[in-house]
Amino acid sequence: MENVIEIEGLTKKYGQYKAVNNLDLTIERGEVFGLLGPNGAGKSTTILMLLGLTEPDEGSARVCGIDPVQFPIRVKKKVGYLPEDVGFYDDLSGFDNLVFTARLNNIPQDIAEMRAHELLEKVGLEREKDKMAGKYSRGMRQRLGLADVLIKEPEVIILDEPTLGIDPAGVKAFLQLIVKLSREDGITVLFSSHHLYQVQQVCDRVGIFVEGKLLAKGNIGELSRQLFSSNSHVIEGGIEPLNGNSSKAVSLEDLNNRVKKIPGVAKVSFENRRFVLEAESDIAHLVSAVIAEAGYGLSYLSKKEYGLDDIYSRYFQ
């Protein structure tokens, strides 16, 4: 696979403060990559450096093999960028705003109009196309922004917090639209967000960004492996002594010891009739067998996989 975005040792300082600190990252063609991090982690700054809108202090970035510091114009021909909280000319209609962007990309007027029609239909704004952009709702503005990014037929689209301020249903539709477009046209997508679930839903790979550093990258499974190198499996369950022959059931301490003996278990804690256990590998089946042997029945057993939520709370706090 070809690398569309290559970042090496990228650093940006604001005075003493390092907004982006020695960042290395590669993104392959056709990938949907999510940059996840809290506010002020340096996501936007990284994106600005990729577009040549600000200059890095150290390191280099390549977008489609082009250095954005030296040739920003050539990068901008291939990259569509949707800024955070995008603005439009309020006194032009949505359609005219799109045609204006197309004209800035040197697309002839007639082709620009044709493409604007197509894209407005794709993003579901064909009915509002002649409405002034100033009267658009937040969600409509974002969708118009997406059309605006796509009108120059980019190879890469970079979206900075594209889902900010849209309602949940709108977010879902918007993200699905992005993924659909990316799959259809093979566009590489890089987007930043601080909403875990949205990233989880649509991204092939995720990079976690804190204080200018990339903590981990990979898909969700890889991430939890990287971040929680041992004991990444957590099993929760409830037990109930089997009815009638409760004499057969061993005491809780005994059960505790038995469970602890299962290979791979690192930590067990029983509390009343519930237990939480951490293990190196997935051993739920062994646990249930041990519990049944001890004269208990399982009232429930659930495997807890680390979601981004846990990653988030563990690393950002």
Partner: peptide, 14 residues
């Protein structure tokens, strides 16, 4: 302030 500046400068225009 309208947010159009970064949009325009993201186009291939010097």
């Amino acid at each position: 302030n309208k947010g159009t500046l970064s949009r325009i400068l993201a186009q291939p225009v010097p």
